[in-house]
Design a protein around this nucleic acid. Sequence first.
DNA 1: TAACAACTTGAGGGCCACCTCAGGTTGCTG
DNA 2: CAGCAACCTGAGGTGGCCCTCAAGTTGTTA
Lengths: 188, 188
Amino acid sequence: MTRPLRADALRNRERLVAAATELFTGSGVDVPLDRVAKRAGVSIGTLYNHFPNRGALIDAVLPDRVGELDRLAAHACAAGDPWSGFTTFLYGMFEMQAADRAINDAILQGRPPGPTAVPAECGRGGGVVEQVLGRARDAGVLRADFGPSDLGMLVRSMAQVIAWSEGDDEVWRRHLGFVLTGVWAGRS
Amino acid sequence: MTRPLRADALRNRERLVAAATELFTGSGVDVPLDRVAKRAGVSIGTLYNHFPNRGALIDAVLPDRVGELDRLAAHACAAGDPWSGFTTFLYGMFEMQAADRAINDAILQGRPPGPTAVPAECGRGGGVVEQVLGRARDAGVLRADFGPSDLGMLVRSMAQVIAWSEGDDEVWRRHLGFVLTGVWAGRS
DNA sequence: TAACAACTTGAGGGCCACCTCAGGTTGCTG
DNA sequence: CAGCAACCTGAGGTGGCCCTCAAGTTGTTA
């Protein structure tokens, strides 16, 4: 079906993804596409040959990063204590989110009619994430009614908090701490 | 210094504010200014005569609404129980925020380098708000270290949650409940 | 190496919102 | 009511970004 790309085409595509990754990560997913093309050393036309729109480019950039979620979640499941597994998973995840404006922006901008495939990607890793949640719930340390949609909302709200933290991790950590205390079901 | 406006100028200014209030409230603070002018029955040039930029218009629209905060806060202080005073204040405030896209948008978009004077306005009512906080803290029902900046962060994060709730108040109420549980310092 | 298809190029058209300003209109004052 | 300032008007300039496409270039296959 899909015949192999010509050598130069493949090279250009890789350069484009690399340039987009850099710019999206640093300045958000709103950077003019001309700038992405220029940084890739390629014409704007070529960019559009490979990616019909901005969303396609974002979709090409994000999945790599989302893969890290799997590792984080696996690590969390391996932890002895379900609660600390759950919390370190969240802290790790938001650390990643705070370090990469592309991710944070994608979450912020994924307004109700989400344009890109981020939700789909999140669904992919959803299985593992659901495991982390389930383990904490079953152990009775997480509110029994805390579901994936609650986590989704937390991610979105934290994206906003992170954007306001301006690089100071302590700021969003503090806020996250409040919420975690709120969803903790253990005995104090 | 500032001599009184001419009669027609005053009328136009009022019409502009009214039109902007309607449009901002319903469709967010991003509506094209041409549309605001048209709805006010005034030319775009007149709009710029009165308000040099969008921020000035927003500043003219919001303060009315922020005034309601004072009433809410006063009501909260009048409540017998400091904790229920605190929580009903917050629920009331976010209800207002959920009902008015102008407010919610202004909060969401007031990115770190905030353009409009919303923060200043919040500071104005800040005295009363600080009272509500202080009362709850002094009564030992609110974390002793929960300050105004924490409240500010909560407001911002809730703005995001509200935007995602798409009119379903139960959604943001649920999330707010988590956070409130987290900052509650009473004995369970 | 010929010859085709795949790919690239970048000027340019479209769109939309922002904002200006020269000229016309209107309230106001004496 | 004259005459001046204050005010209004809206066509049009500006800028940014989006996206297209006809013409040129380059990899590839035979």
